[in-house]
Design a protein around this nucleic acid. Structure first.
Lengths: 240, 240
DNA sequence: TCCATGCTGGAATGGCGTTCCAGTCATGTC
DNA sequence: GACATGACTGGAACGCCATTCCAGCATGGA
């Protein structure tokens, strides 16, 4: 086995599109958006640029592949059937939507570069695999919610937009603001900055700044989801 | 006059931070995200890099300034008092929120680069002037809606997240997908792509693809806003 | 045995953001 | 009217980036 393996491979482990994308994700996670360079990639993979370009069209495609990989992983853990639930108590569509949303939220939280990447990727090529994947996952639950067919598209889109918008903007909050600040310091600094705004132009923002300090991102994200879900339920009563 | 003007200025019109930002916005509008280079900028302003760097810290700051300028302009047109309404019929907070949202939607529609820029800018530095500006504009109406103070932050954030998320993702749809396609062709291509997805994995998406074809972005965006607003009203009844 | 083909990585290219610096001009001072 | 000052300019250069080119390698089939 060892012989065959060694024979069929130039290096300890052959280069492949998978290995490249995996390394790219690791690099993005470790060093952020700007940390993914072909130099760093060739170094980490102990190879040259030509080898990478043989497996991958260009950097944009590599970023797209990284995005798709991470999103797919995030949606894969979703409790489609919830086989471990107490039996006879399947999750409601509402709970499932919350779970899917939270999965995406956490994926963006773990991979902060996803926020920007999704924004460019989704609007640039909605035919890619990532938009339909998210859309499908949410849409099935929207249908289960009892929303009439004519509104499926609108409702599912709205949900997706909220989820990606909110998760994206929260992402960097969690990871501190570029400097070495931790989350509390960062929140505190932002709240302080808000409190020093012009009292005339920013009455509301100043009045609300204190709520910024101790707030829990996840909790607030879910509260937003609930707002949208409640709106959906009110607009399309399940018994209609 | 001409003499004094000519005397006090090195060139026909002196370089200034304003002029630079203005040129940057024009360049971004005309040639897209990647079109803004210092080379193109120096050419358009008939100067050298050093002159630009005297007025501006670096490219990130320039992009931030461009973003702030455009957002400020978008929020400035909002009908704060609606002085031209039939008299005695002021806009409801709900209508005003719709108007503010639509203003942002159209700004992103006119300047597609705003979508990505807002995503990076907002999450990178929430203390900048753009987040508070939007937050304030929406928050005042949320308060007028009768939402209890304890929920101001959550509700306003949710609204902002939906607006920016939805507007951002719709932006590029409107401007065709990179190629020379117009809107209808683009929508059609996307719908066709969705209809060719795996029938098992994408039941919902395939079933809904046809709704993609003729849909109106603005209308759908507003429908989403209404969903959120309805959710807000249901969660916080005005008479409570 | 030898060649075709899939795959590799070092060297080179052109464009980018950014820096450096020698210079220019309006202005204040005497 | 001469001169020093300091805001402001723009050409040349630097280092890093994505991308391309190509001479070579290993391997499976003839």
């Amino acid at each position: 086995m060892a012989t065959r393996t060694r024979r069929s491979q130039r290096r300890t482990e052959a280069l492949s599109r998978e290995r490249i994308v995996e390394a790219a994700v690791e690099l993005l996670d470790a060093t952020g958006e700007g940390g993914l360079t072909f130099r760093a990639l060739t170094e980490r993979l102990a190879t040259g640029p030509g080898a990478i370009y043989w497996h991958v069209e260009n950097k944009d495609e590599l970023l797209g592949a990284a995005t798709e990989t991470v999103v797919a992983a995030a949606l894969a853990v979703e409790p489609t059937g919830a086989p471990d639930s107490p039996a006879g108590a399947p999750d409601s569509p509402r709970d499932e939507i919350r779970a899917v949303a939270l999965g995406l939220f956490e994926a963006i939280d773990e991979h902060p570069w996803l926020a920007t990447q999704l924004a460019t990727h989704l609007s640039r090529s909605p035919w890619g695999s990532v938009a339909p994947r998210i859309f499908e996952s949410l849409g099935r639950r929207v249908r289960a919610l009892g929303v009439p067919e004519g509104s499926w598209f609108v409702v599912t889109s709205a949900l997706m937009h909220y989820i990606l918008g909110a998760a994206g903007q929260n992402a960097a909050n969690a990871r501190a603001g570029g400097g070495g600040l931790d989350r509390d310091e960062f929140l505190d600094a932002t709240a302080a900055a808000w409190e020093e705004l012009d009292p005339d132009d920013y009455v509301f923002t100043r009045a609300v700044a204190y709520q910024m300090r101790g707030h829990d991102d996840r909790e607030q994200f879910l509260a937003g989801i609930d707002l949208v879900l409640t709106g959906i339920a009110a607009t399309h009563p399940p018994d209609a």
